[in-house]
């Protein structure tokens, strides 16, 4: 399969009081064309920062990519200019945010906001742009699209607003759609609708999707492949069926184990003990070692290498050192 996006040893850091604080420590993964990749991990594991690094959107913060490559088609996004990046944003890579309630400008009509990327990237005339906007709104299942474009965001429900965000994101036929927890703020029935819609659109347009979430149910439903992140590193990468069938990394096992199952007769839910470590004070060796059930002495000494396993899986854990001797970076 052809790779659309390849991230190699991506490092991102923030500077505070002239001290660099590294959050992403060499993230490696790739997305194939027409594939849905899930990016999973706890809060603070660096999922969102990875997506912001791809878009180079660090807002007013001191965030900066300090190493590695982000290969998108035949361009390295880490060293292209801001004006070139602006041409990619929205046109080739688009993004959907977590909060549909705040990601639309409250004082602009829906139509104006929707027309923004269409005018900018497709260079359509006013009338055609409007027609395009209406057709996109219909595509994402919005009733009375012609009227909605003259309304303000507060007149719509959360689900509708997220549909509009999706419409905005897909309006210029991007090759990659980054969805940062797109359903977290929505209630369950709407969640299912939005996920269905995204899956449909993804298949119809043959778009690649990077789905960031901590909801394993969503992952199972949507994704082809899954990347698990912990403390700014990729700890496991696998096909979605294999991941749920036989998780390798103790962290992945913990994540899957902590999802309550139907018919479970336990009083207490399983959980992973402890918290995500403070990025300014990371433990030596494996970052997951203090919380791990299978911890070994070596885990506290040295960071585990990225081990390539069968079926294109990979896992960075000392448990599998014997299983596969050769170390792949």
């Amino acid at each position: 399969m052809e790779k659309l996006l390849q991230i190699e040893k991506l490092e991102t850091e923030f500077t505070k009081d002239k001290q660099a604080l590294k959050i992403l420590h060499g993230v490696n993964f790739h997305i194939n064309k027409g594939e849905v990749l899930g990016l999973v991990g706890e809060s603070g594991s660096g999922k969102s920062l990875t997506s912001l690094s791809i878009m180079k959107l660090f807002k007013g913060t001191s965030g900066e990519i300090s190493g590695g490559r982000i290969q998108f088609n035949d361009q390295d996004l880490t060293n292209i200019s801001e004006s070139d990046m602006r041409k990619i944003r929205g046109k080739q890579i688009a993004m959907i945010f977590q909060e549909p309630m705040t990601s639309l400008n409250p004082v602009m009509k829906i139509g104006e906001q929707l027309l923004e990327p269409i005018r900018l990237h497709l260079g359509l005339k006013e009338k055609q742009a409007k027609a395009h906007a209406v057709s996109i709104l219909k595509k994402v299942g919005i009733p009375r699209a012609e009227e909605i474009i003259n309304e303000f965001p507060h007149q719509l429900s959360g689900g509708m607003r997220q549909r509009i965000m999706i419409a905005m994101a897909i309006s210029c036929n991007p090759q990659l759609l980054i969805a940062d927890e797109p359903t977290t703020a929505l209630d369950v029935t709407i969640q299912a609708q939005i996920l269905d819609l995204m899956k449909q659109l993804q298949q119809k347009e043959n778009m690649s999707v990077l789905l960031i979430t901590h909801d394993l149910g969503v992952v199972a439903e949507m994704c082809d492949r899954v990347v698990v992140m912990y403390a700014g590193r990729v700890v496991e990468e696998a096909d979605v069926f294999e991941l749920f069938e036989s998780p390798k990394h103790p962290y992945t096992k913990g994540l899957i184990g902590s999802v309550p199952k139907l018919g479970q007769k336990k009083e207490k839910l399983d959980s992973i003990k402890g918290n995500v470590p403070d990025p300014s004070n990371l433990p030596k060796g494996c970052k997951f070692a203090p919380r791990c059930n299978n911890v070994m002495p070596i885990c506290y000494q040295e960071e585990p290498p990225d081990l390539k396993l069968e079926n294109g899986r990979s896992c960075s854990c000392w448990l599998y050192k014997e299983e596969r001797g050769d170390i792949c970076v």
């Binding site: 959107l57 807002k59 944003r89 929205g90 688009a94 909060e99 639309l104 923004e116 990327p117 905005m168």
Partner: peptide
């Protein structure tokens, strides 16, 4: 205003500084 999500969303659509 510059910290709001909709400004970030507009940036992610490729809007210019001026806009």
């Amino acid at each position: 205003a510059k910290e709001t999500v909709f400004v970030e969303a507009a940036k992610s659509m490729g809007a210019s500084h001026f806009r």
